[in-house]
Simulated assay, not measured.
Amino acid sequence: MLNERSEKRWEKMRAKGKRHFVVNSGVLRWGLITAVLYSIFVTYLNNGLAGILLNDFLRTLLIAVIVFSIGGYFWGIWVWKWQEKNHRKEQ
Rank of each mutant, 00 (worst) to 15 (best):
G31T: 06
N24P: 00
W75K: 07
K89A: 14
L61M: 08
A64L: 05
L45M: 09
I40H: 00
V79F: 07
W78E: 06
G31K: 04
S6A: 15
W75L: 12
V42N: 07
A15K: 11
E84F: 08
A64F: 04
N3P: 08
V42S: 10
V42R: 13
R29V: 11
I40V: 11
L45F: 07
A64C: 03
L58Y: 14
F41M: 13
V42G: 03
L32T: 09
R9A: 15
N86R: 14
R19E: 05
L54Y: 10
Q91A: 05
K81M: 04
G26H: 03
W30H: 13
W78Q: 11
E90V: 10
N24C: 05
R9S: 15
V23I: 15
S69H: 01
K8A: 13
I40M: 04
I66E: 04
I40W: 00
V36G: 04
Q91P: 03
T43V: 06
V23L: 12
H20P: 01
I70M: 08
H87R: 12
M1L: 10
G76Y: 01
H87D: 14
W75H: 07
R9G: 13
R14K: 15
L58I: 11
W82A: 13
I70C: 07
S25F: 08
E11S: 13
K8E: 14
L2A: 11
I33T: 11
H20N: 12
I66K: 02
V67E: 03
I70K: 02
L61Q: 04
D56G: 10
Y44E: 01
S6Q: 15
N55W: 13
I70D: 03
G48W: 08
G51Q: 04
E11F: 06
